[in-house]
Amino acid sequence: MSEKILEMKELVKTYIMGDEEQVVLRGVNLEINRGDFVSILGPSGSGKTTLMNIIGCLDVPTRGTYHLSGELIRDLPEAALSHIRNREIGFIFQQFQLLPRLTAQKNVELPLIYAGVPEKERQERSASILERVGLAEKMKNRPNQLSGGQQQRVAIARALVTEPTILLADEPTGALDQTTGHQIMALFQELSKEGKTIVMITHDSDVAKNGSRIVRIIDGNLSEGVYNA
């Protein structure tokens, strides 16, 4: 039995839209163990983005509990949530979200700046992680000098560099062509084999099959079918 790092119990998220209360997540129960590669599969409007925001500590649940690395995530001051995100979560976005003015290496260093890592160590860690994702030659390039696949690799390196508890990917192949998407998924598989915990949000069931577990979300309800890849 491996270590449980994420646990959601009867998690409800509602938004107030005008006078109406809109329920987005209806009592979600989810457990993720260290080393899992979980695909959260759902169509748009299913509540998967809200679920991702809560997993990523960008948002907090209305009701129910969410424990991440044993810590209860609730309505904390924004600075405290920032620290948790910095330490626990490695974000990978559909649109890469690289800063265009910074080199690949500087982009990767960004979360380390907020973690208070000294400059020299930042450079060493960012260089070695870029090498790991196969971009040793491109460290000094800016995002606009890189292909989409390379940009997503930089983003993955940025997510890995803080050694977070969870890699949280939101449609990581959504902005890429099929071939490049396969390469990125191959990299995810490698990272999973190395023991990284990955949570991937997608609407594409083919992409979702890369995960060791697929969790479906429809209308704010989760249902799970386990696939062993």
Binding site: G56, L58, E78, A79, S82, H83, R85, N86, R87, I89, F91, F93, Q97, L99, L110, P111, Y114, A115, R158, T162
Partner: peptide, 16 residues
């Protein structure tokens, strides 16, 4: 705006 959002997601505090 999106840069600010990204920085916050990566762990920047509001004061930073």
């Amino acid at each position: 705006t999106s840069e600010i959002g990204l920085r916050k997601a990566l762990g920047a505090e509001p004061i930073q």
